[in-house]
Nucleic acid binder design. Structure first.
Length: 435
RNA sequence: GUGGUAAUAGCUCAGUUGGUUAGAGCAUCGGAUUGUGAUUCCGAGGGUCGCCGGUUCAAGUCCGGUUUACCACCCCA
């Protein structure tokens, strides 16, 4: 006997129906926003991923040497492949590029609930557009796709942060550029660590700076806690970066205005505690959290204006997000909003007399060719059994083939939900069902 | 990669201080009802008790190892 490999999932039909419901909503939302779908290969050259994230990433990759002696890896994320595909045609693509992708990603990690070695992710990105309209469009798509599952402000929130403002703050405080990335990566972790660890780790990140570290850390702590535009202004009341900061905060106001015009403002809260751990983010960054249960992160993203160029392609501003299927599905289950894609047949035939079997098969196949989802029993069965079978399929109608009605060229069609039954012409089954 | 807990039928689980042939519900299949299901009743099949070894007259139960899952770290693109 064989088992699945650790962290890999297999989908029985019922699980598939749940998963495909999620995919269908994602796809629908993306199409509403006029994003087009792309799909890169599952297996890529190892270098594509180490180029973006460094050699250390290898320990978390499904990587190996293939039979042609190539160092390859299953994709842990979509962004490098996206950058390559867009980059390769950068000059001929209409801007802005609005692309999305739904695909399985692989990470060689010890799994936990909600974190497997194989997981699907919905990614959406806008490339070639610097304006705030692109940031707003991406944030709104993230929110609207969660809303399409019936989720509301009671169940999730989006926290909006800003690495640009952080950089101005850190520079204003006298922290040299070499120390900003380590400092931000400590800020990113603050909510995941024990309260007393922050001082220690930040001290470590700021090592070698000739400043009053304890008071600096105190200032950083206060900055992390900022949740309003007013507080942002008050931090930059003086200092060399005052003017730049003011400009940036004006952009905050604009972005929030656009989001409120889009009708998603109630989901968004400014929160400078959100910085995202990755060094390549360059501007607004955001994370969506469920506000029920464990408060887990559902999706995250932000602006990454330098990444495409870093990977060796033309300079292109970009903003995007990723959302996993496992966390979304767990949340839907938790709040009782999980659904399945409806794939149940429209009709199932009921054969009262076996002499009609040939006619039944003919009719069923005509209906299938007309776009009706139809099934029929393969062998003689008692009538009660046939109805049970039709019911267990979830068929919406039973089409009853009986000698008496059939001699008039008719069948009975029974609505299995209401129990209502009517006799109709053989040729009118499809129209009757489409109702 | 580190530590803790667990593993019994397809699924959810029971199984006493170690003691005859390991149980239930759901699901599946068959029948009661030869022109009507979702909501009836009866019956059947299905288990190397994760795997390997040890202790014992005797192991689902105790001990060691191993694999897998869950939880907490690490990490989180």
């Amino acid at each position: 006997m064989f088992n699945t490999l650790p962290g890999f999932r297999e989908f029985y039909p019922q699980d598939c129906a749940k998963r495909d419901y999620i995919f269908a909503q994602w796809r629908k939302s993306a199409h509403r926003f006029a994003f087009v779908e792309f799909d890169p290969p599952v297996l890529e050259s190892l270098e594509l991923f180490t180029e973006k994230s460094g050699e250390e990433i290898k320990s978390q990759l499904f990587e190996f040497i293939d039979k042609g002696a190539r160092a390859v890896s299953l994709r842990p994320e979509m962004t490098p492949s996206l950058a390559r595909m867009v980059g390769a045609q950068a000059n001929s693509l209409r801007k802005p590029v609005k692309w999305f992708c739904i695909g399985e990603n692989y990470r060689y990690e010890r799994q936990q609930k909600g974190r497997l070695r194989a997981f699907y992710q919905f990614n959406a990105d806008i490339l070639g557009e610097e304006s705030l309209a692109a940031d707003a469009e991406i944030i709104a798509l993230l929110i609207e796709s969660l809303r399409s599952f019936g989720l509301t402000e009671n169940e999730f929130k989006l926290r909006l942060g800003d690495r640009d403002l952080w950089l101005l703050f850190l520079q204003n405080a006298g922290i040299p550029e070499t120390h900003t990335t380590p400092a931000l990566s400590v800020v990113d972790k603050i909510e995941r660590m024990r309260p007393d660890a922050f001082f220690e780790m930040m001290q470590d990140a700021l090592k070698g700076i000739d400043l009053d570290i304890p008071s600096l850390i105190e200032k950083i702590k206060n900055f992390v806690a900022i949740k309003t535009i007013e507080e942002m202004y008050s931090v930059f009341e003086s200092g060399a970066f005052q003017e730049q900061a003011k400009k940036r905060i004006e952009q905050w106001k604009q972005l929030l205005n656009i989001l409120s015009d889009m009708g998603v403002g109630s989901f968004v809260s400014p929160d400078l505690g959100i910085v995202r751990g990755l060094a390549y983010y360059t501007g607004f960054v955001f994370e969506a959290f469920q506000t029920v249960g464990t408060g887990r992160a559902l999706a995250g993203g932000g602006r990454y204006n330098n990444l495409v160029k870093k990977l060796g392609y033309p300079d292109m501003p970009a903003v995007g997000f990723g959302m996993g299927d496992v966390t979304v599905s767990d949340l839907l289950e938790l709040v009782g909003k999980q659904k399945s894609l409806d794939i149940s047949p429209d009709i199932c035939a009921i054969i009262i007399d076996e002499s009609l079997r040939g006619e039944v098969v003919k009719t069923i196949f005509n209906l299938r060719r007309e776009g009706i989802n139809a099934d029929y029993p393969f062998k003689p069965m008692q009538l009660g059994k046939q109805f049970k079978y039709a019911d267990s399929l979830g068929a919406k109608h039973a089409v009853i083939f009986a000698p008496e009605e059939f001699s008039r060229g008719n069948v009975k069609v029974k609505d299995l939900k209401s129990g209502q039954e009517s006799e109709i012409k053989l040729s009118e089954i499809a129209t009757h069902i489409r109702g």
